[in-house]
């Protein structure tokens, strides 16, 4: 029985710790930055994993959703919300960014009803390019020069809070009726449809949740970097997130955390290599695809992330449980 409260207890402690670290500057600011990057990348990786890993579609649109979230939130905190209220209303701006991205995600989901596989990749790719060129053509958003003036509102406690929220919500989604619908689309969409899964509903929900959190991550990213421009959200950004998903493992929460952490840290460690770092990283990705195509934790889950009911449902040992 006490295990039920173990997880929330630990999380609360860590949250308090993050508040203390933030308040008293206990951690070197560079390290804090890295930790926050990891957090933002976890949100991005897990939310993309919902589409690419759990649902088995191939979206490369995450950079676009991030951009929508980042620009909406930044516009709000810089141009709309009075400066003295910005710190207080920051969550509102972040949520607005997420909602904006979710709305756009809904529109992008529509073509995915009809077309399969490669075509979603093309549609989302076109979407990233369109978002970029729309922003470049809006002067109020700074056009190609970028947008600045944000205060550094994304702090360690906030990032931690959003990471936990996204993990919790996406876990809940995965271990629900809709989540099983998502998995059935990956396994065999036609069979899923014939087993009463309303595939449209499932896709709409998955895309909305996924793009919502990408927007949240974008909003946090903007208020951590304090400067964004359209090039921060180009196809390279999407590729980064893809690498984290397929490095950590498809269809896995633990894998998403692992992928985001390993990749972010690896990039920092390899920084002295300069440009050769960017030569090495794609090479790692290719080798990964050749030798472990589902990623480190592909289709497997760490038991902590599995709700109790699903964990105890069967009689075989837990480690035999697959993606669900």
């Amino acid at each position: 029985m006490h295990t039920r409260w173990l997880m929330p207890g630990i999380l609360l402690c860590v949250f308090v710790l993050s508040l203390i670290i933030h308040r008293f500057e206990l951690l070197d600011s560079y390290l804090q930055l890295i930790v926050m990057y990891i957090g933002i990348n976890i949100i991005l990786t897990l939310s993309l994993n919902l589409i690419n890993g759990y649902m088995g579609e191939f979206s490369v649109g995450h950079a676009g959703f991030m951009a929508v979230g980042a620009y909406i939130a930044s516009f709000l905190t810089v141009k709309v919300i009075p400066a003295h209220l910005a710190a207080w209303l920051f969550p509102v701006a972040v949520i607005a960014g997420g909602m904006g991205a979710a709305l756009v995600g809904l529109v992008v989901a529509l073509p995915s009803f009809k077309t399969r596989g490669d075509y979603l990749a093309i549609v989302t790719l076109a979407f990233v390019m369109i978002v970029k060129s729309v922003i470049e053509n809006i002067d109020a958003l700074g056009g190609p020069r970028g947008f600045l003036g944000m205060e550094k509102l994304a702090t360690l406690p906030w990032v931690f809070f959003w990471v936990i929220l996204s993990l919790w919500i996406i876990r809940n989604l995965v271990y629900s009726n809709f989540g099983r619908g998502v998995l059935s689309i990956r396994e065999d969409e036609v069979a899923g449809d014939l087993m009463s899964v309303n595939t449209r509903q499932v896709k709409v929900l998955a895309f909305t949740v996924s793009s919502f959190f990408a927007g949240i991550a974008g909003a946090l990213f903007a208020h951590l970097l304090q400067f964004i421009n359209p090039r921060s959200f180009d196809i390279i950004k999407s590729t980064d997130i893809l690498i984290m998903v397929y490095l950590g493992g498809i269809g896995s929460i633990a894998g998403s955390i692992l992928g985001a952490t390993v990749y972010t840290v690896l990039l920092e460690i390899l920084r002295p290599l300069g440009i050769w770092r960017m030569v090495l990283i794609p090479l790692i990705l290719v080798l990964l695809m050749l030798f472990r195509p589902k990623g480190i934790m592909g289709l497997r889950e760490f038991p902590w992330f599995v709700p109790l009911r699903d964990r105890l449902a069967g009689r075989l040992p837990r480690n035999k449980r697959g993606s669900s």
Partner: peptide, 12 residues
Amino acid sequence: FRELTVLDNVRV
């Protein structure tokens, strides 16, 4: 649904 458990095949 090949990569899902027997239970989840039925739950879907």
